[in-house]
C-alpha cells in the first residue's frame, strides 16, 4: 500500500531522513514512534509528498508519487487523508463546511457534498454539531471533525501526524477508538506518528522505531507482546520491549 524506497531528506546542512526504506501493508494500523527530532513527522509528510524527498521513491496505492507532475500529485493527494496535531480546521467555516471542503476540491455535486459530509460527521459521532464553528468545540471534537474531513473523499490511506498530542488521556482514547473504527469498518490503512508509547501500543499492529533520521527497527504487535525485534535497540526500544513483554 505504501512503499518508501531509499528516502533521504535534508534541511540546509542537516540530514533529517537517512536512506529510509519502509513498506506498509494494506489495512494495517502502522505506528511510527521516536523521540522529538527523530524525523518521524518528516517521514509521514514525505508519504503524501507534502515534503519532497531529496532522494528516493514514494509509492502509494501503486502510484509513484515522486514521479507525478503538480496536477497529478494534487489529484493523488485527494485520495490520501491527513490529520494533524493542531487539527488545522478552518475557524471561519462551520463543521459541515469544513468537511465539505475536500468534496468541493474534487467538484462533487453540491447535494452529494452535503450528504457525504453528514455521513462522515455521523461516522465520527458529530452530526449534531454540523452547524457549529470549530471555536465552539473541544479539542477531541475538533480532531473528530478533522478525521471526518479526511474521510470525505473515501481515502484508502489516512496519515495521522501526532493526532493525540494536544489532547488529554480520556480524549486520546476516544480519538484512538475512532481511528480504530476507521481502519476496521472502512478498511482504511492508517499510519500514526507519535512520541507516546501508549498511543502506538494500544492501536497499532506494526510499528517502526525512528531515531536520528533512521528506522532503527520495525516490529509487529500482537496480544502476546512485541516481536521481531532483531536489531541493537536504543533507549526507546528498550522501554517499549520491557513494557510490552
Amino acid at each position: 500500500m505504501i512503499k518508501l524506497r531509499n528516502i533521504s531528506k535534508s534541511y540546509a546542512q542537516h540530514q533529517v531522513i537517512k536512506s529510509v526504506d519502509l513498506s506498509i501493508g494494506k489495512g494495517e494500523i502502522y505506528g511510527i514512534i521516536g523521540e522529538s527530532g527523530a524525523g518521524k513527522s518528516t517521514l509521514l509528510r514525505i508519504m503524501n509528498v507534502l515534503e519532497r524527498p531529496d532522494q528516493g521513491e514514494v509509492e502509494v496505492n501503486g502510484q509513484l508519487l515522486t514521479a507525478l507532475t503538480g496536477a497529478e500529485l494534487r489529484r493523488a493527494r485527494q485520495s490520501i487523508g491527513m490529520i494533524f496535531q493542531q487539527f488545522n480546521l478552518l475557524a471561519n467555516k462551520t463543521v459541515l463546511d469544513n468537511v465539505m471542503i475536500p468534496l468541493q476540491l474534487v467538484k462533487a455535486p453540491r447535494q452529494a457534498q452535503r450528504a457525504r459530509a453528514m455521513e462522515c460527521l455521523d461516522f465520527v459521532g458529530l452530526a449534531h454539531a454540523a452547524n457549529k464553528y470549530p471555536a465552539q468545540l473541544s479539542g477531541g471534537q475538533k480532531q473528530r471533525v478533522a478525521i471526518a474531513r479526511a474521510l470525505a473523499n473515501e481515502p484508502q490511506v489516512l496519515l495521522c501526524d501526532e493526532p493525540t498530542s494536544a489532547l488529554d488521556a480520556g480524549t486520546t482514547s476516544e480519538i484512538l477508538a475512532v481511528l480504530d473504527n476507521v481502519n476496521k469498518t472502512l478498511g482504511v490503512t492508517v499510519v500514526i506518528v507519535s512520541h507516546e508509547l501508549e498511543v502506538i501500543r494500544s492501536i497499532c499492529n506494526a510499528l517502526a522505531v525512528m531515531a536520528d533520521g533512521e528506522i532503527y527497527d520495525t516490529l509487529t504487535i500482537t496480544p502476546k507482546g512485541i516481536t521481531q525485534l532483531d536489531k541493537s535497540p536504543q533507549s526507546l526500544v528498550d522501554k517499549l520491549t520491557k513494557e510490552g513483554s
Partner: peptide, 13 residues
C-alpha cells in the same frame, strides 16, 4: 501555517 498545510494535503490548487 497549518491551514495552508491542510489545504496542500487535500490536493488544493
Amino acid at each position: 501555517k497549518g491551514v495552508l498545510e491542510a489545504a496542500i494535503s487535500m490536493g488544493a490548487s
